[in-house]
């Protein structure tokens, strides 16, 4: 893992307006879990997971239901903080800083590590307000340019530019999910977490999201949980396979996972022999 200075932006609620310079660092680790265990009460959901997520790549997390992949995703930006019985041991290091350190502000963290959920969940507000929300909670006035940039980044601008003041809920399911992506990228995050972002969409809308992910990764690091293994194979650079018990069984280039996995349990899972 490349050594990085801790990211002070996680500590301060002030976010610099300076754009992060995203030069080409294809193999640099942006985020790493070290000896991570997660418990819900007495039940262990994540079992001693260590993994290094490369920057500006798509990393897919796959595995059967209940294997802990969504739990792991939610650990990354501390969404699990909201679950009382959830306990996290180990480190999640984002740009050199353990996100579970006491001085990390979870709200600031989530601006740097945004999230898109399974079901599109736009706010019952206008399209414009959905996009500007993330900036305004930081006390930053959002400009028309900010709105256009985020909507273009989510491949939605051309479809909605003449109706920015209509409700986000009036959009189709696929458009709503892209609006949620626009909302996530408006604060200019480093990492976007996606928890089954296309499972509620029809194939055409899902393919637009897949195309969008391919574009997003030029600027952001994407970590996606998916039950659709063909989707993981299509869109990701790296794939992590979790199996029951929260064990990370294998993590490698996606082509390797789907052509010649090292672990026979992974082979059995991806070929459908598992279970």
């Amino acid at each position: 893992m490349a050594t990085q200075e801790p990211d002070d932006k996680l500590i301060s609620t002030e976010v610099s307006a300076d754009e992060t310079v995203r030069n080409e660092r294809p193999d640099e680790t942006v985020l790493a879990a070290k000896d991570l265990d997660v418990y819900y009460g007495e039940d262990r959901a994540i079992d001693d997971v260590s993994i290094e997520i490369p920057e500006n790549k798509v990393t897919a997390l796959i595995g059967p239901s209940g294997c802990g992949k969504s739990t792991f995703l939610r650990c990354i930006n501390r969404m699990n903080d909201q679950i009382d019985v959830c306990r996290v041991d180990g480190d999640v290091v984002f740009k050199g800083k353990n996100v579970y350190d006491g001085d990390v502000d979870p709200v600031a963290l989530r601006r740097k590590i945004g999230m898109v959920f399974q079901k599109p969940n736009p706010f019952p507000k206008s399209i414009r307000e959905n996009v500007t929300y993330g900036l305004e909670v930081q006390g930053k006035p959002a400009t028309e340019g900010d709105v256009e940039r985020a909507l273009r980044g989510a491949a939605l601008y051309e479809e909605v530019h003449d109706k920015l003041d209509t409700s986000g809920l009036d959009l189709s399911g696929g458009q709503q999910q892209r609006l949620c992506i626009a909302r996530a990228i408006a604060p200019d995050p480093e990492v976007i977490l996606m928890d089954e972002p296309t499972s509620a969409l029809d194939p055409v809308a899902a393919s637009k999201i897949e195309d969008l992910i391919d574009t997003l990764v030029e600027e952001y690091t994407v970590i996606i949980v998916t039950h659709n293994m063909q989707q993981a194979a299509r869109i990701s650079d790296k794939t992590a396979v979790f199996l029951t018990g929260g064990e990370l069984v294998e993590f490698d280039d996606t082509a390797t996972i789907f052509e010649n996995p090292a672990d026979s349990r992974v082979e059995d899972y991806i070929t459908g022999k598992f279970g």
Partner: peptide
């Protein structure tokens, strides 16, 4: 959509 050993 075979993968891994099945694909080979």
């Amino acid at each position: 959509q075979p993968v891994a050993g099945d694909l080979r």
